[in-house]
Simulated scan of single mutants.
Amino acid sequence: MKKSSRSADVYLRFLQLSEAIRGLPSLPPLDPLEERILAWVARAAREGERLCVRDMMARHELGAPATIHSRLKSMRTKGWIALADTEDARRKQIELTPGALRHFDRLARCMLRATRA
């Protein structure tokens, strides 16, 4: 068997560590589309971008607006996102919850541990 590269080893350790944190008491799991939406919301938040429900529903690569809306509702119920008021009462801004931020912190620690090993 061919020896794997250092980069592959780091990534595989990260996968193993990140799987371990999925077993810890936390927020309910997300389906694959919800994970994509969460990543989109997290990137927007990191860039200081305000992301509204209507903005997400316009993302055709994520599916039909009704599908996106149902996933946002599910993610809100599961505690991953919250909806905040904006200047326009008809628009709601999507925000990460403290639980979602803790999840990203745990993943970051997994990445750091994987690179140290």
Rank of each mutant, 00 (worst) to 15 (best):
M75F: 01
P25N: 07
A20P: 03
I81T: 08
L112D: 15
S5D: 10
T67F: 00
P29W: 04
W40M: 10
R13P: 03
L96F: 12
K73H: 05
L27H: 05
A39F: 13
W80N: 02
A82F: 05
I68T: 07
G79A: 07
R116C: 02
F14Q: 09
M1H: 09
Q16G: 11
E95K: 09
M57T: 02
M1A: 13
S26I: 02
A58N: 08
A89D: 14
D85H: 09
T67L: 02
R43W: 05
L12M: 14
L38M: 08
A20R: 07
P98V: 01
F14L: 10
I68P: 08
C110L: 06
L38H: 06
M1W: 04
A114H: 06
R6V: 14
A84M: 10
E19K: 08
P28G: 03
R6S: 13
L27W: 04
T77D: 10
R22T: 12
K73Y: 04
R54K: 06
L107P: 03
T86V: 09
D85V: 00
C110N: 05
Q93G: 00
I68L: 01
S74R: 07
L24S: 07
H69V: 00
A45T: 10
P98L: 02
R71G: 00
D55E: 03
G99M: 05
M57P: 00
Q93Y: 02
D88V: 03
D88G: 00
A39G: 13
L15S: 11
E95Y: 02
L17Q: 11
R22P: 02
A108M: 14
D55H: 03
A117P: 04
R36M: 08
R6Q: 10
R13G: 01
M75T: 02
R116S: 10
R54A: 08
D9N: 14
E19Q: 11
G48P: 05
G63Q: 00
V10T: 13
S26C: 05
R46Y: 07
P98G: 07
A8T: 07
H69D: 13
M56A: 09
T115L: 14
L112K: 14
E34F: 02
L12D: 15
R116G: 03
I37K: 01
T86C: 04
I94V: 15
S7R: 15
A89P: 15
P25G: 06
G23C: 01
A8H: 06
T67Q: 07
I81H: 02
R76K: 11
R102Q: 15
W40F: 12
A108V: 13
F104Q: 15
A44P: 01
I37G: 04
F104A: 15
M57Q: 12
A20C: 04
F14W: 14
I94G: 04
A89V: 11
Q16V: 07
F14T: 01
E19Y: 04
E61I: 00
M111W: 15
R113E: 14
R36P: 00
S74C: 05
R6A: 13
A82H: 09
R54I: 05
K92A: 09
R6I: 14
L27F: 05
R43G: 14
S74G: 04
V10W: 04
A20D: 12
A42Y: 10
M56H: 01
R91H: 06
T115R: 15
L17W: 06
R106I: 07
A39R: 12
E87A: 13
D31P: 01
G79N: 09
I94W: 06
L72R: 00
Y11E: 12
L24G: 02
R102A: 15
D9F: 00
